[in-house]
Amino acid sequence: MLKYAGLCLAAGFSIWGTVNELTDKALDGTRRLTKAGLVAISFTVLGLIISLVSEDLQRRENDASHAAQVAAEAKLAPTKSLSRASH
């Protein structure tokens, strides 16, 4: 869920950034980032970071769950073979 919230945040501010003026031209011809530009870039990056971190956390949780399941099955495996041998 957090992954999608991050992607929506990034997409929303990317769109917002395209419809707003993100830079100003100074008198010497250089371009400066406006407050709107800084906000758009910051929230877009933040949204992408949230998505990446939540995806990594979900992957780690799935790996831990799988490892626990394999360990539980490994504990049961010798018991099953012993019960079959006694029959």
Rank of each mutant, 00 (worst) to 15 (best):
F13V: 02
L76W: 10
T30N: 06
K80N: 06
A11K: 05
E73L: 13
K75G: 08
S83K: 10
L7T: 07
A77N: 10
A68Q: 00
A11P: 01
E55H: 04
G29S: 01
A5M: 08
I49K: 01
A11M: 12
G37M: 14
G6E: 07
T79R: 09
N62Q: 07
D28M: 02
A11F: 10
L27I: 02
L76V: 09
A85T: 09
K25S: 06
T30L: 04
E21A: 12
S51T: 10
I15K: 13
S42V: 15
K35D: 14
G37F: 06
G12D: 09
S42Q: 14
E21M: 08
R31L: 07
R60V: 01
G17K: 00
N62C: 03
L7K: 06
T44Y: 11
A64V: 03
H87W: 06
F43S: 13
L7C: 03
A10P: 07
K25F: 02
K35I: 15
F13S: 02
A64M: 08
R31A: 09
S65K: 13
G37D: 14
Y4R: 14
S54L: 03
G6F: 00
A10Q: 11
R60D: 03
G6Y: 01
R84W: 05
A85K: 11
V53G: 03
W16D: 13
A40M: 13
G6R: 07
M1I: 04
L52P: 00
K80W: 06
Q69Y: 01
M1D: 10
M1L: 11
L48A: 14
L52N: 03
R31T: 11
G6V: 01
A68R: 00
V39Y: 06
F13W: 01
S81H: 11
E55D: 06
L82V: 07
F13K: 00
T44I: 13
E55K: 05
A5F: 13
A5Y: 09
C8E: 12
I50W: 02
L57I: 10
V39N: 00
K3C: 02
K35A: 15
A40C: 15
E61R: 01
L82G: 04
D28I: 02
A64K: 11
N20T: 05
